[in-house]
């Protein structure tokens, strides 16, 4: 093995070591993100309450996509996917506001791109 080969081998090992900074596999990332989003359920309830006050029949889905920044774990660039969202516009905006700024802890060495669907539905009649 030449010196060059040794250097390249070291580079590969180093790069793989850097990759191992990712703590979570997909399942763990999904589960942790779901838990994180659940911390905003009160805000989302308020969002829906406001929407229902504006329109008593307000309901529908909001499909939201966002990035979880590597190293910081911050949720950033949340956007609504209009083609897969049926909720009123004000409710969509409220969802984006509610989840923006959340931080996944501990952060992961890998960036994630996540898609979640919220369904807003009235309370069942009693």
């Amino acid at each position: 093995m030449t010196h060059l080969h040794r250097a390249l081998a070291a580079g590969v090992v180093a790069s793989l070591a850097a990759c191992s900074g990712g703590l979570r596999n997909v399942e763990a990332y999904r589960a942790d993100t779901t838990k994180l989003l659940a911390t905003r359920s009160a805000q989302l309830q308020r969002c829906y309450g406001d929407a229902l006050r504006a329109d008593g029949k307000a309901a529908g889905t909001v499909t939201v996509q966002f990035v979880i920044e590597k190293d910081t774990g911050a949720i950033s660039r949340p956007t609504v996917e209009p083609a897969h969202s049926t909720a009123p516009p004000a409710l969509r905006r409220c969802v984006v506001k509610a989840i923006d700024g959340l931080v996944l802890a501990p952060p992961d060495g890998k960036e994630a791109r996540a898609t979640f669907v919220y369904a807003f539905q009235p309370a069942p009649a009693t």
């Binding site: 990712g22 979570r24 997909v26 990332y29 999904r30 993100t33 779901t34 989003l37 659940a38 359920s41 989302l44 309830q45 969002c47 829906y48 309450g49 229902l52 309901a59 889905t61 992961d108 890998k110 960036e111 994630a112 791109r113 996540a114 898609t115 979640f116 669907v117 919220y118 369904a119 807003f120 539905q121 009235p122 309370a123 069942p124």
Partner: peptide, 13 residues
């Protein structure tokens, strides 16, 4: 890492 929520997150009024 790219993933989707496993199920729809339901918010009941």
């Amino acid at each position: 890492v790219v993933f989707q929520g496993k199920s729809t997150l339901v918010v009941t009024g």
